[in-house]
Amino acid sequence: MIATDLDGTFLHDDHTYNQRLFAKVFRQLQKHHIYFVAASGSSYPRLAREFAPYLDQMAFISQNGSVIHQGRQLLQTYPIQAPALARVMHILDRFYGPQDINQLVVSGPQTSYVDQHMDQHNLAIVKTFYERVQPVADLRQLFSDHPQEEFTKISINFADHVDLSRVAATLDQYLPASLIIENSGFNTDLIGDAHGTKRNGLALLQEKFNVADNEIVTFGDNENDLGMLAMTSQSYAMQNAHQVIRMQAGHVTARDNNHDGVLKTIQEILKNNK
């Protein structure tokens, strides 16, 4: 099984990937009965769009592990309970103002919600990562307005002047114990159920497909990938990853994300294991 993060890892900086090379590599993976897993902080609809031609032959760990799919089939969600959701919104209101937060997104397995007053620039960015985005009059009323809907992740993109290390320290003090905060890069923190991690999502797929620990290869570039990278000695931090991430992975790719580092590494792995 091969699992890779997307942004900053598998995808180029312009959110594209080498379609021709991937088609070639994917055929090789299928020939060797190797599952390919996309693991991202983004929503499932975005991942399904990115890999539309391969949708039914892949697995997807979305929202940092809060939502797991095998193809089109939903396998698992880790929803945030309504009181915990309300607590997060209260904490954000207490410590941060509109000048501190560019994008605040509350997501379910399929639909993500934003404030209807979000400017067009930030809305376009959100739609890149979440695909199905619905503006609402008041995010604070979302839970009472949609009592039957599951909410699985809160994403906060902070303005450049905000110190993210201080954000983590502050929120860790006040978040309910049932929640976890992880940095997803690009000045963005994701808050979700503590069980909803990429590591746990990959472990679920590992059990489902009966894959041994030494049969897993992982790729990542950021803090939210560390749990997944720690699962196997065959872990790869991207050449473009922060030094802390590279030090904790088993290997570092020879090429960065803009030069197809994941796909070229997979080709080398397949070549060396013939």
Rank of each mutant, 00 (worst) to 15 (best):
M1K: 04
M1W: 03
D7S: 06
L11K: 07
H12V: 10
T16Y: 04
Q19G: 07
R27I: 07
R27K: 15
Q28G: 11
Q28H: 10
I34G: 09
Y35G: 05
A38V: 01
A38C: 02
A39N: 03
P53D: 11
Y54T: 06
D56H: 13
D56C: 11
D56Q: 08
A59R: 02
S62M: 05
S66T: 09
H69K: 15
G71V: 14
Q73V: 09
Y78D: 07
Q81G: 03
P83T: 06
A86T: 03
V88G: 09
M89V: 01
D93F: 12
R94H: 12
Y96E: 01
D100G: 02
T111D: 13
D115L: 04
M118A: 11
D119T: 12
N122F: 12
L123Y: 08
I125Q: 06
V126F: 00
K127R: 15
T128M: 14
F129A: 10
E131P: 00
V133Y: 02
S144N: 08
P147F: 04
P147M: 02
T152L: 01
I154M: 05
I154N: 00
H161F: 05
V167M: 13
A168G: 11
L171G: 09
D172P: 01
Q173K: 07
I181A: 11
S184I: 03
T188C: 12
L190N: 10
G192T: 08
H195Q: 10
T197R: 06
G201D: 04
L204K: 06
L205G: 04
F209E: 14
N214R: 11
T218D: 00
G220E: 03
G220C: 07
D221W: 01
D225E: 01
L226I: 14
A230L: 02
T232A: 05
Q234D: 14
M238W: 01
Q239S: 15
N240M: 04
I245S: 08
R246G: 09
A249M: 04
H251D: 11
V252R: 06
N257T: 08
H259N: 11
H259K: 09
N272H: 14
